[in-house]
């Protein structure tokens, strides 16, 4: 589902490459953690996957798309099949919970009757059925992240990318988010989650891909966060 072949990324302002000859593959339906300290290249890798950036060399594959070589006008098609969740939720503050989720469907031109049926279903999936008309400012961090996940999942993406989704949440709330991501993973969606959260990685016992200074440091099928850290 996701395949990186000898991918390097050099930013013009930095001497050291952000990614240095990384090759890794994530199968369809897999759940993988992407770990490593700040500046190790996790975010860069995610940015390459959604074509926010193009690799300096090497090839990035998502499903059957050669992401780096994709023409600009085809990028929306790629992103419509991917969901993204971020540490800072990125909800639209002037729209209700339901509108935020509906937004992802509206911008790709889904008909209104589809939106009306799909949005409540997804809000139900993330246990927010009762808060559809709330504004983001009225939500707790955990609830906000659930809305973000609902929005990322509402198009039934092939891949869900999560960039430190629990970074701003307490451990208990984080656990709830992880349960939700697992639930989504069980529907067949490939999940790749970048994280610093040792406790989560250790408790989940899923695949762990570790980056260190832009290089692939470790790739364990059922890994833990690491002993030295």
């Amino acid at each position: 589902m996701i395949r990186l072949e000898n991918v390097s990324k050099v930013y013009p302002t930095s001497a050291r490459p952000a990614l240095d000859d990384v090759s890794v593959e994530v199968e369809r339906g897999e759940f993988a953690f992407l770990i490593g300290p700040s500046g190790s290249g996790k975010s860069t890798l995610l940015r390459l996957l959604i074509r926010e950036d193009v690799p300096s060399s090497g090839t990035v594959w998502v499903a059957n798309w050669n992401v780096g070589g994709l023409a600009g006008r085809r990028v929306p098609r790629l992103r419509q099949r991917m969901g993204c969740v971020f540490q800072d939720f990125r909800l639209l503050p002037n729209k209700t919970v339901a509108e935020n989720v509906a937004f992802a469907l509206e911008v790709i031109g889904k008909p209104r009757h589809t939106i009306r049926t799909v949005v409540p279903e997804v809000l139900d999936l993330v246990d927010l059925a009762g808060k559809a008309e709330r504004m983001p400012s009225e939500l707790s961090g955990g609830e906000a992240q659930r809305v973000a996940i609902a929005r990322a999942f509402v198009n039934r993406p092939l891949v869900l990318l999560a960039d430190e989704p629990t970074g701003n949440l307490d451990p208990e709330t984080s656990a709830g988010i992880m349960t939700l991501l697992e639930r989504i993973n069980r529907t067949g969606t490939t999940v790749l989650m970048a994280t610093h959260d040792r406790q989560i990685v250790d408790s989940m016992r899923r695949r762990v891909v570790e980056l260190s200074a832009g290089r692939l440091a470790r790739d364990d099928a059922r890994g833990v966060y690491g002993v030295a850290r």
Partner: peptide
């Protein structure tokens, strides 16, 4: 930015 992220075309 969010619109682009969820796959809205530049045109849209």
């Amino acid at each position: 930015g969010i619109m682009r992220l969820v796959g809205a075309t530049r045109w849209y």
